[in-house]
Design a binder for these strands. Structure first.
Lengths: 193, 193
DNA sequence: TTGACAAGTCAACACTGTTTACTTATACCT
DNA sequence: AGGTATAAGTAAACAGTGTTGACTTGTCAA
């Protein structure tokens, strides 16, 4: 009998470290983006993955390690920082209107659900720099590149947060094209030398 | 013997609903602004106040009721929305640089520590509208007042969040006056009709 | 076949917010 | 003054959390 068969051991599965790790990660991503970090318990992730709770800590150190890995996969924003410089503000504005104000990327959703969580601070800290501010600053260049990039990041995150707080009704009801135009102007102002 | 004396009952205090409520509230404000909502347990608030845990739920319904009451006291932003219209963007910019990027108001600190907390959503939701977007929209008037006010709110909250995530180093190292100028321009852009 | 080692399990730990049933002090009324 | 209703305060339990250490069991190599 082939030990890699799906048809398994007494408990229904072959012992495969990597496969189990991936199962947990998949369940975590699913649940985190659906309900947010704090709302999802380790036990429910384990149950969804059909796995023992203790394995989360074995493979990811702690629950936060799961989120760290989940958000590390997302690469929506870095893709934005490519193409011609002139239309960057518009691309960012469109990203805000169609992504941030829409469903949002998995990273965004997890991030906005879970921002402010104490033991996630370092996770977000790293990600904010490496995925948003850093690439953007490098891309725009010029004096105070980092300052200007940080302002754009603040705007992005702020819109996301306001939306999550249910305060973005006005933005979502507004005419999308007009909003893109307005945001383009704001981002231009942020990036101005 | 005067029953309102500080010198008390067997457990060291007179029974006084309002005074006890205030004690709890004071301890909560202190601890929330120092360490953040999630980090502070009901029991630690009760201990700090020298009071039984169950009284928190008795007087405030639940832990979230405590934060709701704490942040309801803060009125830093509404004060901003007074005075001549022309200099509003500059006042907001200065608020961001000197308050948000500095120590922050108690509300801000609590808010930024605790944003994203699920059962606080409704609390922040209400506060965002009644203390920031609402007053600002009324003040600026004109078409899309609410949309424009929401963008400013997003910027404010975004800067606060980025700072909390440790991503605002660039902003805090930047020349304060120059930053105020830049932010004034951005806020003007947000408010533009 | 027998070990060794990894993968997986189980039960416990200390902690959380919240609720219930309880005791006790206060203030009012006869 | 004495008795009593009512509110203030208490204690203990509940169900849930993340995390840990000692345990069992499957798998693969010698």
């Amino acid at each position: 009998m082939n030990p890699t068969d799906a048809a398994d051991t007494c408990h229904g599965r072959v012992r495969d470290r990597e496969a189990t790790r991936q199962r947990i990660l998949d369940s975590a991503r699913e649940l985190f983006t659906q309900e947010g970090y704090a709302q999802v318990s380790s036990r429910s992730i384990a149950a969804e993955a059909g796995v023992n709770v203790a394995l989360i800590n074995r493979y990811f150190g702690a629950k936060r390690g799961l989120l760290a890995e989940v958000i590390a996969e997302d690469a929506a924003f870095p893709q934005l920082v490519q193409g011609e410089r002139q239309t960057l503000p518009r691309r960012i504005a469109e990203h805000v209107v169609h992504r941030t104000l829409g469903e949002g990327t998995p990273l965004q959703r997890a991030l906005l659900h879970s921002l402010g969580d104490p033991d996630l601070k370092s996770v977000f800290e790293e990600r904010l720099q490496s995925a948003i501010i850093g690439p953007l600053a490098d891309y725009i260049g010029g004096p105070d590149a980092r300052t200007r990039a940080t302002l754009v990041a603040a705007l992005l995150i702020g819109v996301g947060n306001v939306r999550r707080m249910g305060g973005a009704d006005a933005l979502m009801e507004a005419d999308a094209d007009a909003l893109v135009q307005r945001l383009t102007g704001i981002v231009e102002r942020c990036l101005e030398e």
